[in-house]
Amino acid sequence: MSAPVRAAAPGSPKSLARSRPRYGEQLIKAILLISALVSIATTVGIIVALVEPTIEFFSEVSFGEFFGSTTWGPLFSPPAFGVWPIIVATLEITLIAILVAVPLGLAAAIFLSEYATPRVRKIFKPVLEVLAGVPTVVFGFFALTFVTPVLKDWFPFLGLEAKNALSAGLLVGVMIIPIVASLSEDAMAAVPNGLREGSYALGASKMLTSVRVVVPAAFSGIVAAVILAISRAAGETMIVAIAGGFKSVFTLNPADEMATMAAFIAQAGSGDASVGSIPYKTIFAVGSLLFIMTFFMNYVSARLVQKYREVYE
């Protein structure tokens, strides 16, 4: 025989098993699951949309021609499919942007995490993040109409063209500062205070503690922030299209006009390339290459985060 069920004592809490079903919690779980599935489905959809035209493109243009030439002009006659000019332009503008965003973003993160009072942090962090909401077309016109003329006046020996990689890279760097600063500050805020107190107990200053203790402890989060910023800079379109230009020339001089991969996609997608033609399929080939590059950077970021999280756990 089964044991008799005891009646709950007066005033005792009800059994969790017999509590009412929490429909709100189940709804939240369902919404979160749907959000995750939508993200995965979007990524899969992008891959599916890119694969077939890319395969068709490389059935007519060889890998040797695509990666072995430094002449790019798929929209010209005769066409040229050497992709290195737009790859180099993308990497060059991204490098300039990172040289701007990482020092300024980390400095802002250290200030907000280690020096700012709660009241100052409450004001300045939202203001910094608002910068990420500025339309990129505004950054582009600002680079074209203000930054480039200023650089020409201050550094005439650079010989800047009206559109150039330098001003485009500088403004892309300003655009991604909030990504580096906000995510790095979150990582630093998660560092246990015991590490700081131990450093202070050994006589270290606040600056030494910030640089030698807090930043290394938050290294995984900082790396993730930087890689995310790199991915964002590599895929930026409007700033590089307006301020960098569309000239596909193989050059390492940031004073020259040059087209990035994203700028070419924007140019070709808004042009007269007929659907199904080789110039049209070139858009998908370049998009696939850009997708692979950003995927690789995110993979490296995930591996580094996993590695250094294990160190500090």
Rank of each mutant, 00 (worst) to 15 (best):
T260I: 11
P74S: 04
A116I: 13
L166D: 00
P178H: 05
S62D: 07
L104R: 01
G45I: 05
L252D: 01
F284G: 01
F219T: 12
V174S: 00
A143D: 09
P13T: 05
A233R: 04
L131W: 11
V88F: 06
I123H: 01
A224P: 03
G159Q: 07
G64V: 11
I177H: 02
F246S: 10
V38L: 11
V191C: 07
L289Q: 00
F81S: 02
E161T: 11
F141C: 05
A165D: 02
S69V: 13
R121E: 14
A97C: 10
I47G: 14
L228G: 11
L202Q: 09
A190C: 03
L208S: 15
F111G: 02
S277G: 01
L131C: 09
G24F: 13
V130G: 01
A273L: 04
K247F: 13
E310K: 15
V191Y: 10
M297H: 07
T237Y: 06
R309N: 15
F264N: 00
A132F: 13
F284C: 08
M188F: 09
L50A: 05
P53K: 00
K152L: 12
S12R: 13
I265L: 15
L50N: 05
F296L: 15
I239N: 00
S210H: 07
P10N: 12
F142D: 03
P149L: 08
P4W: 04
L95P: 02
E114Y: 12
A225N: 04
A262S: 14
T70S: 11
Q267N: 12
A97F: 14
F57Q: 02
I222E: 08
A285W: 00
L32R: 10
T43L: 15
G276C: 09
A273N: 02
Q267T: 11
D186M: 09
A30R: 09
V88S: 07
G276A: 07
S274T: 14
G24D: 13
F58Y: 04
W72D: 06
A241L: 15
A181R: 03
G133V: 08
A132E: 10
A224M: 12
P85F: 00
M207R: 13
A189G: 15
A165V: 14
G245H: 05
S231F: 10
A168M: 10
S288C: 11
I93Q: 01
V211F: 13
T54N: 00
A97R: 08
V127D: 00
K29L: 15
L166V: 09
L166Q: 01
M297S: 08
L183R: 03
E197K: 03
V275N: 07
I110A: 14
D256S: 10
S59H: 12
A229P: 04
L37S: 11
F296K: 04
E60C: 12
L158A: 01
I283P: 03
V5R: 08
